[in-house]
Each structure stands twice: as structure tokens, then as C-alpha cells.
Write a protein that binds this DNA or RNA. Structure first.
Lengths: 352, 352
DNA sequence: CCTGTTCGTCGAAGCGCTTCGACCAAGCGC
DNA sequence: GCGCTTGGTCGAAGCGCTTCGACGAACAGG
């Protein structure tokens, strides 16, 4: 393996000049730069990351801590990871995933203190995430994906659940729907303090009340079967329901199957709006779902930029960012079945 | 940040003694070892990974290359990752995920050459995977998860599709089924050279023929809707079908929904055996699926051990390992509906 | 023509660790 | 009591890079 010293000899310059030519830290004449580049190419030089890291005290690695073993890695996370990796690369860094469980915060901290990464992105943050305290106390640079109960100025990026649920409700109310049910994540996610479950539930309730409507929410297990049962349950409780907001992809499949089974037309008799969805979900059902797509890519980009600004020690940390979901029209949402047909089909305003 | 030199001073020994006490490379008296340990604790010493890596020319990092952006990270992969991470840790290494796309082989190679990892696990290997050639030519230690078309002695671990499909067919035939259809992964996976699609298809066909039966296979898109259509298609083609082998989890949900929709009892009138499944899938349907669970954890363990044996330069590389899936009884498989009830319900042999 | 800058380059001092050879004091057999 | 091994320790030489101070040359202004 060729070293920088070899390159220097071959190019007839000093070691440090090669270093400057490579990093651009100091100006180097064009002629010298070319000779160095040629020498590097001829020798097949590859810089040594460890040596660079040791000398500069920066690994140029950002770690994404993700409990892959506990949750899988769904489409939204994939988008996030992809965008984060690209953004890191554009800024001269590498994004790596550390598959640690939520209770392995100490190991994450130690790895950063050992210099294996310059900072971490913490995914799937729960309301009372123990990892956050550990990292904060150790002085490890980090950015949360999601938010603890009390964000307290800590750097974070997250889906704007309040806004997303409000827009979902507004959209449906705008189509004349009055009885709208929300099918949330499972009770189990709530038990473990999974924040989106709570934020979306509160957001939905607030949005409904702001229209003078009564929110109906069900927490549903992540399975098609549970979705079917949840639908049955909702219809038993509130037969007049004309629209569903769902934040549970797998259960949504079950809901659609059960609706079809019961001969309830979508969207003629029941609108289904899936929020915070992964890409590609819309087309996995018939009719294609109307969705509000989670901003995975944008969150990934922002999270990395936020972390980099901390790591480089420059600029303001930009404490927190909230991104809403974007509505993507499908064919599962339509006007309420009892909406006045005269007042314009798809855009009928809510009736007072 | 305390250095090893600080520890040495505090313990009243030399730098090298601290190093030996830490690594165990040379023997150190118990008394000295205790003093060193005490000094490290008092100073809150954390070794510097970069310095260690530079001096030893080993990063103690194993990279798992996974195209997270293209595929998600399902349950099987999660099991794999979890076991691989644990095995790596048990052997003094760290497992990290590199979210590179399949066409980024050069970057993977470069990172290893730069010393960011000692070796790589390549997941989702396709029949003609370009990454394999790149890594082989660069002399980078790697182990494939999956197999290229021609393994050629390269280190790999994989699901034994031939054995799994044979056992699946044997099991069903043993229950009296004669007309068995196989619902495979999608045509799209085949187009991109996804090896399991081919190996399972061939294995199923061979197993059927060995019983003198005609294989019926359908490639099905990964969606519930596609599953429903595939079932309809199979029943139209071969109305006497009494059992399905599926290797497509999402489609399987659709199949079950459609069976229920048509009033076809599972398993009374149709057995469904899902193979190469993720954990937890069985319980996501009603009745719980009978499955053959993919050996994710075992593959993860073996893959890491294989890679470590290459990296440490010791022991034989143990070229390849194939692991079958284990049958996990559920309630979706039963005797064929036209099997002679007299000859013993569940264990009736195939009729000639 | 002299001083003050700026540009490009160099040498050397680390970064924090591993590892090799050497050394010393015991402990051993004979 | 001799040389020999052995266990425990030390000093020093790197590992391959970044970065700082210094220095000569080219060039500007006065």
C-alpha cells in the first residue's frame, strides 16, 4: 500500500505538500498539484483513514443509531438513510449504521468517545429515551430523529404530527366528512413510549375538536387482521363513519380487505387517508391509497446537516426542525357520501 | 481525554505495560494489572480507536453492505443483523452497516482499502453481482450472504433453498397433497437477478418432479392485491389445487384474504405453507400461518465467523455454508381435502 | 533599491497506540 | 554454583497522516 511519503518522493515534493494538495488546506500551485495527482494515480494511492483520523482527531464518520433488531427498516427509514448517506457524502463524511438496541446507549457513547464516529443520529427516539440523557451527559454530539417528551433545546428533526393530522382532518372535513376515525399504531408502541403514537393521537383529537367534531381513535396492532377487527369495531361504535385516517400501514391493508369484504365502496362510501406512509404503499392496494407521505428524505438531509454543524463546531446548532407530510392524491378519498352533491363534488366545504 | 501515557504515569508503570495489560498480548503480573485497571478507572480512560487502528493496521470493524435504500430491512434481515452484531462483539469487533447501493461497489472497496473496515459482508447478492468481482479483484476480505450464479469457492453463507423447498413439498405430499402451487417472488426480482427467486423455483420444481408431480409456479408482485390475483389465477388454471407454498409474505396476506373472501377454508380446503419467512409473520394472520422460518440468526453468526477467519488470516476460510429453514407449525396446513381419511389423518402417505 | 506581503513549499513535531528487542530478577536442573 | 530458561517490565521505533512555524522567492509600494 502506497503511503503519502511514496507519493511525495515520486512527485518530487515534500510530504506536507502532498497533504496540502489533497486537502486543499493551503494553496498549492497548479503545476505541483498536477504532479501530485499524477503520482497518486501511478501508485494507486489510497489515503489511510486511521492515520488521518488520528492526526486530525476527526473520523469523518457519522453514525446512525438504529435499533434494526427491534424494528425492521421500513420504506420511510430507507428513504431517510439514503438521503442522510448522500448528504454526508456531499460533505466529506461517511454515514454508517450502528445496529444497537435502545438499551445499549453506553456502547454508543463509548464508541464515539473512542473516536469511531464524530457524532450520532439517534433514530426512533421515544418520549423518555434513555439514550438521549446518556449522550448529552457525555458531551457526544448528536441529533435526534423524533423528539423526547421535553425536547429542551436539544437538536432534533421530526415529522410534524400536529400539522400532518390537522391537514388530514382539514382535507377530509373539506370534503364534507364529519365522522372521522383515526386508526393509530398499536397499544404496544404506546407502552414503550413511541412518540408518534401520542403526537398523532393528540394532533388528530385537536384537529377534530377545532372543527367541533368528536375524535374517535383506535390503537391497532400492526397486522392485517387487527385492521379488519378495528374497522368492525369502529363501525359498531360509530356506524355513520365516512372517513378513516390511518397511521398503520399493515393494518390499513386489513381495513381495505374488510371494507371490500363488506361491500363498502372506497371512496364512495368510505374514504381512507393513510398518513405518515412509506413510499410505494399507495400502489400496493386497490384502489391506490391517498396518502400523506412521510418526509423521510428531507428529514435525513436536515438531520445530517444539523449534526455536521455541531461537529464542525461552526454555525448555530439549529435546535429543531419539524417537517409535515405531503398529500399525495390516490383514489381512496372522496367526498362524504352524505355531502350535498350540489355544492361541488370534490371540493365541497364543510357544512356548518 | 486521558491517554495511555496518563494511565501509565498514574499506575507507575511504562506505557507499553499498560498496553499489554489492556490487550493481554504479553503476560502482566496480577498486581500490576490491578494498578493499571485502577488508574484507568480513576482517569476514566477510553482507548483511542484511531490510534489503535493505525498502530495495529486493523480497525476491528466489519462492515455489512446492505442496499437499505433499495430494499427495506425486513424481519429476516433484522435477525441476521442482530446475530451478526452479537457475534462480532463476542470476538472483539464491531459490526456496522454501510448503506450502499448495489452499484457502489467501488466505494465499498475504497473504504476497506482506506482501513475503515477489515472486511465486508455483502448482503442480497444477485446471480451476477458486480460487487463480488470488484471486491475479489481488490483483495478485500468478504463473505457473501447469498450466492452468485457460480460461487467458485468464494466464501458465502446462504439459505438452502433446494432443501427448504424439498422439505416443504415433502411435508405437503406427506399430508396427501398432489396439486401444489408455488407463489414466488415477483418477476421484477427475477429481472434483477435476485437469486432466491431462481433457486427456490428450481428447488420446488425438482421436488415436485421427484414425486412425479407437475410443478405450478407463479411469480407474484409483493402486494396483497397481487396475491389475491395470483390465487385466482392458480385456481383458474388448476382448480384441484389443495396446497400453496408461498415465498412472498405480503402477497400471502392477500392470498389468505382472497381465500376467506371465497369461503375456502384454511386449512380444510386449502393448505398454505409460507417458506423463508421472517419472524412474527405467522401470527399476523388468522389462522396463524404454518411457516418455514428463514435461518437469519444462524446465517448472521456463520457469516461473521467466516469473515473473521479470513481477516485474522487463521484457519480455513470454510468456503460456503447452506442452512435450511425450520418448519414451524401453525394452523394453515392440514391433510389434503381428498386424502383418504382412513389412512391416518395428518400423516397420510402420498397416494401413488 | 529597500521593506513588507503574499504565495508556495518544506521540515519537524506530534496524534495515541502496538510491538519488537532488550533487560533484569527469579527459579530451574545438574 | 553455573548457565538457562522464563515471567515481567521497559524504552524506543514506528503506524501514516495533519498542521504549525519557518523560509525563500516573487512582487508590490514608496
Amino acid at each position: 500500500m502506497a503511503t503519502m511519503q511514496d507519493v511525495a518522493r515520486r512527485a518530487g515534493v515534500s510530504l506536507s505538500t502532498v497533504s496540502y494538495a489533497l486537502s486543499g488546506t493551503r494553496s498549492v500551485s497548479a503545476a505541483t498539484r498536477d504532479r501530485v495527482a499524477a503520482a497518486m494515480a501511478e501508485l494507486g494511492y489510497t489515503p489511510n483513514a486511521m492515520a488521518r483520523g488520528l492526526a486530525s482527531r476527526r473520523s469523518r464518520v457519522l453514525a446512525l443509531v438504529y435499533p434494526a433488531a427491534e424494528r425492521g427498516l421500513g420504506g420511510t427509514v430507507a428513504e431517510f438513510v439514503s438521503a442522510a448517506a448522500d448528504t454526508a457524502r456531499e460533505n466529506g463524511h461517511h454515514l454508517v449504521l450502528w445496529p444497537f438496541r435502545t438499551n445499549q446507549a453506553d456502547e454508543v457513547r463509548d464508541l464515539v468517545l473512542q473516536g469511531m464516529a464524530d457524532g450520532v443520529l439517534v433514530m426512533e427516539v421515544t418520549l423518555d429515551d434513555p439514550r438521549v440523557a446518556t449522550l448529552r451527559d457525555a458531551g457526544v454530539p448528536f441529533t435526534m430523529i423524533g423528539r423526547t417528551r421535553d425536547v429542551g433545546g436539544l437538536p432534533s428533526v421530526d415529522v410534524d404530527f400536529e400539522r400532518t393530522t390537522r391537514e388530514a382532518v382539514d382535507h377530509l372535513v373539506g370534503l364534507g366528512h364529519r365522522r372521522i376515525a383515526f386508526l393509530n399504531h398499536s397499544e404496544a408502541t404506546a407502552t414503550e413510549g413511541y412518540a408518534p403514537t401520542f403526537r398523532a393521537e393528540e394532533g388528530f383529537a385537536a384537529a377534530m375538536r377545532s372543527h367541533g367534531l368528536e375524535p374517535l381513535t383506535r390503537r391497532v396492532d400492526e397486522s392485517p387482521q387487527a385492521g379488519r377487527e378495528a374497522l368492525a369495531d369502529v363501525l359498531a361504535d360509530q356506524p355513520g363513519t365516512t372517513a378513516l385516517v390511518t397511521m398503520n400501514e399493515i393494518a390499513t391493508f386489513g381495513v381495505l380487505a374488510e371494507l371490500q369484504h363488506r361491500g363498502v365502496g372506497v371512496p364512495e362510501q368510505m374514504s381512507v387517508l393513510a398518513i405518515v406512509t412509506s413510499p410505494g404503499v399507495a400502489d400496493m392496494s386497490n384502489p391506490p391509497l391517498t396518502t400523506m407521505h412521510a418526509p423521510g428524505a428531507e428529514l435525513g438531509r436536515l438531520a445530517v446537516l444539523n449534526l455536521l454543524s455541531q461537529v464542525s463546531g461552526e454555525g448555530s446548532p439549529a435546535a429543531g426542525a419539524l417537517i409535515g407530510c405531503t398529500l399525495e392524491p390516490g383514489q381512496s378519498v372522496g367526498p362524504a357520501r352524505d355531502a350535498a352533491p350540489a355544492s361541488g363534488a370534490a371540493q365541497s366545504p364543510p357544512r356548518p
